[in-house]
Each structure stands twice: as C-alpha cells, then as structure tokens.
Design a protein around this nucleic acid. Structure first.
Length: 425
RNA sequence: GGAGAGAUGGCCGAGUGGUCGAAGGCGCUCGAUUGCUAAUCGAGUAAGGGGCUAACCCCCCUUCGAGGGUUCGAAUCCCUCUCUCUCCGCCA
C-alpha cells in the first residue's frame, strides 16, 4: 500500500510511475476520497470535543451536588451524541473507501527499474555458465523421469489431478536433498535464520503481503474457514513481524524457510502443461529480509547473490534479469529474476524471483522499526526471493546433467545429501 | 469435544460508571551524585489520526484483545468473536 500522504505530495510522480507499469491512476477519485475523509474527521472531532467537555462538566456538577443545570445539559449532549454517532458511520465509510482504493494500487517502481510494457522489455543483467552442447539427442525431464521411475505424473493425476507430481525413489530423495542443501547453504554460509512456518495463513496475513484482496483467485481457500494455503513462504514469514516494532540493531533480519507452495494457476491454462514446470503444489526454499530503508537496495543485491550461489554450486547455467516496469509484480518496487537454462526448451526459465518491496508490504502489515536516535518508529523495508524453487531445480538438474546413455549425474555438492549416490541410472 | 479462568502501556501489574491515557514496579532516556561494568536520588518515557507549522512547539480526536450495544459519559455494565491458560476426554 502506498502512503496516502506521499501520493498527495507527489501526485504527478505517482501517476507517471504507475503508468510506467501500465496502470492508470485515478487522481481525481483519490483526491475526492482524501478530502472527503478529512472533512468528516474535522467535523466529527469538533463535536466529540464538545461532547467530552460537556460530559466532564456533568461529572463535576454531580460531584458538587449541583443538580440545577444537569437535565438541560444532558439533553443537549444527547443530541450531540446522536450526531457524532451518525458522523462516525460516515467516517468509517470514507476511511474504508479510501483503504479499498489504496489496496488496489500496486507499488511504485524504483528509479533503477527499466521501463517497458512486458517481459520482452526485461533486461539481462548478467549470465553465469555456458549452456552445454549435447552431442546426442536430449530428452526432457518427463521422459527421463519416467525412464528412471523417479517421476510418476500419471499416478499423481490419479491421486489429485493435473498439475500435481509424484516423486519416487531417487527422485523423491533428490527433491529432499535439494531442500536440505539449500537450507544448509543459506543458514551456514549466508547467515539466515531457518524457520518452519505454518503452511496455511489467515486473511490478515495475506492482506499484509499484498496477495489479498486482489489475487484471491490464485489461492486455495480452505472451505468453511478463514485459512488459505500458502502460495509461497513469503506470506507466513513476512507476517512473522506483522504489527511489530523492531530495533534498528536487529536489522537486517534474515529468514530462510522451506515450504510447499500451493497455487491455483488460474489464467495459466495451456501454459506449461507438460511436466512439472508449473504445478498446483511445489516445494520452495524462500529467503525473506527485513531491512532499514536506506539499505534495502543493497540488501536486494545481496539476496539475489545468495540465491544465485545455489545455482552456481549446483553448476547450472543461469542468467539474471531485471524486470521492467510493466512486468513487475503488484507489491514489488524492483525485481530480479533468476533464470536457469532448460535444455529441452532451449531457453532460460525462471527459477527465482528476488524483490524489494520497499515499505509497500510494511505499511499493509504494519511492520516498523525504531531508528537510531529517533523517537518515532517508522516503516521498514521487506524483501524476499526464492532460494530457489526446488521443483524447477530438479528439472534443471535432470536435463542439464543427463548423459548419452540416459543416466543422470548428481551435482557434486548434492552427493553427500544423496547418501553418496552419484548417478541415477 | 466438555468444564473453568483470563486478555490493561516495551514488560509485569493495579484499577468495577465521571477527577483514568490509566496507580505501582521493571526496563529505557536524560540529569545529579558516589574514585572506579554497579548503587542511590530527581525528571522524563505508548501508538495512530486530524489541525497549525518551513520544521519544532502546541491544540484536538481515537485507542485498556477485536467488533457491536447501553449511557450525557465505559478499562469498568451487556452481547458476539478471537486468542491464551488450567482440568477432563481424544490423539500423531
């Protein structure tokens, strides 16, 4: 959520920035809502002040035993009280209208974000590793997965439906090995604190991170409850500190969490129907940071590096892409995508998305910190990124590490996590 | 699932219709003092919103788990909900 005061003071900038991400900002509507709210507040507060004074007066008169003017005063206050009641209803209407308006508005892109309208305008920042030249006919992860009986998509469909996976044997172990490997690297080398959060969260949490109210159709809601399955660990982990005030000394706070992620993938019909690229349920190791505002962009660079290091250790070719304004996620001020090389598609595919949300989520979720030597708490900045998506890492490993005989080598760093298994054959 | 108790400021905790935004304590900040990481004394110490302002000061409103109600007036009375704790039952 944007700061209404900031919008008031910078409405041209806001308009321009939002249009860079393809959104038309209704300035007139906004101004109307704001001034409407202020007017009502002024009026109601004046009446309340009158009411309070009168009530105090009554208390005083009663104590003094002076009952002469009581009835008249009480009658008068009754009228005021009625007015206040009515106005307060108007006030809460005005405030929730403004709130609803603000909740629909995406974050403002940072100045460093390249301008553009869609993913074709994203900018490649750097590349690591070389896509391998295979001297034989390669197979995709589905074919290889079935061949070695490590991936059983047919039976997954029987159990649940399409877009679900059943890992078996060394496939299941590979998934688990990756999770443990990633958690170890981020906790031991990168200084993150491991958390294991609930896999469901409530409405307040989803509103805090910006998934609600706008994106309810992407979520699995549990029937007859207020719970939703988490689409990413970002939701429960960012909400760890909702409605809290942290000390500047504690910042940055860095968490890493493994969770499964549940997404309806509404609107992606026909996209990535083959294999496990796009699932209703997938595993992910997520990095989340709470940072001082002045540090958040350097923290974003660091976070992106922490995520890329996983790919480097796995020796998977990847590139880093800066999302353009038009492709930016709703809550994000700046995003880098990490894209891993997928041989069967002969292109890079997203495996991690690292974002700085500025104070956008912090305002919604009311996460603040006490700055050094300043009495008033202020909003901190939140960041997160996948470190990395486990299912897609499995695809990348299976395909990039395939051998001519159809066997799959295990990346060196994973062998200890695979109990010494070096090849799937 | 059954029975009971509770939720107050950063923390602990008093407060059952008006002088309560809230005693007292801890913590923290500042000052004084003692020859030395401590003790003692004094002062200060919630958040959000609105107005004024260049900014501060100041003024006003709201907030005692959340939401409603009664009342001129609610931390205090009534209703609903959420959460926590204790006992019993069940259980990975």
């Amino acid at each position: 959520m944007l700061d209404p005061k900031f919008i008031e003071l910078n409405n041209e900038l806001v308009k321009e920035k939002l249009s860079s991400r393809g959104m038309k900002f209704d300035l007139e509507g906004f101004n109307k809502l704001v001034s409407n709210r202020k007017e009502i507040i002024k009026e109601v507060e004046q009446l309340e002040s009158e009411k309070n004074k009168g009530s105090k007066q009554i208390g005083k008169l009663k104590r003094e035993g002076n009952t002469g003017e009581l009835d008249a005063l009480m009658e008068e206050l009754k009228v005021i009280s009625e007015k206040v009641k009515n106005l307060n209803e108007k006030r809460s209407d005005a405030e929730s209208e403004l709130n609803q308006f603000l909740l629909q508005i995406p974050n403002i892109p940072n100045d460093s974000v390249p301008l553009g309208s869609d993913e074709n305008d994203n900018v490649e920042v750097r590349k690591w590793g070389e896509p391998k030249d295979f001297e034989f006919e390669i197979k995709d992860h589905v074919e290889l997965g079935e061949k070695h009986d490590i991936l059983d998509l047919k039976r997954a469909t029987k159990i649940a439906g399409s877009r679900f996976a059943l890992y078996k044997g060394l496939g299941a172990r590979l998934e688990r090995a990756l999770i443990n490997f990633m958690l170890d690297v981020h906790t031991m080398d990168h200084g993150y604190t491991e958390v294991l959060p609930p896999f469901v969260a409530n409405k307040d949490s989803f509103t805090g991170t910006g998934n609600l109210p706008k994106f309810e159709e992407d979520l699995f809601k549990l029937k007859d409850t207020e719970y939703y399955l988490v689409p990413t660990a970002e939701v429960p982990v960012t909400n760890i500190h909702r409605d809290e005030i942290l000390s500047f000394e504690d910042l940055p706070v860095k968490y890493v969490a493994y969770t499964p992620c549940f997404r309806k993938e509404a609107g992606s019909y026909g996209k990535d129907v083959h294999g496990i690229m796009r699932q209703h349920q997938f595993n992910k190791v997520e990095l989340v940071k709470f940072s001082k505002p002045e540090d958040s962009y350097s923290e974003l660079e660091a976070l992106t590096n922490d995520a890329s290091r996983i790919l480097e250790l796995l020796e998977l070719p990847y590139r880093v892409v800066a999302l353009c304004s038009g492709d930016l996620g709703f809550s994000s001020a700046k995003t880098y995508d990490l894209e891993v090389w997928v041989p069967s598609e002969r292109r890079y595919r997203e495996i991690s998305s690292c974002s700085n949300f500025g104070s956008f989520q912090a305002r919604r979720a009311n996460i603040r910190y006490k700055p050094f030597k300043e009495p008033k708490p202020s909003l901190l900045h939140t960041l997160n990124g996948s470190g990395v998506a486990v299912g897609r890492a499995v695809i990348a490993i299976i395909e990039n590490y395939q051998q001519e005989d159809g066997s799959i080598e295990i990346p060196r760093v994973l062998i200890p996590y695979m109990n010494g298994v070096k090849t799937i054959s």
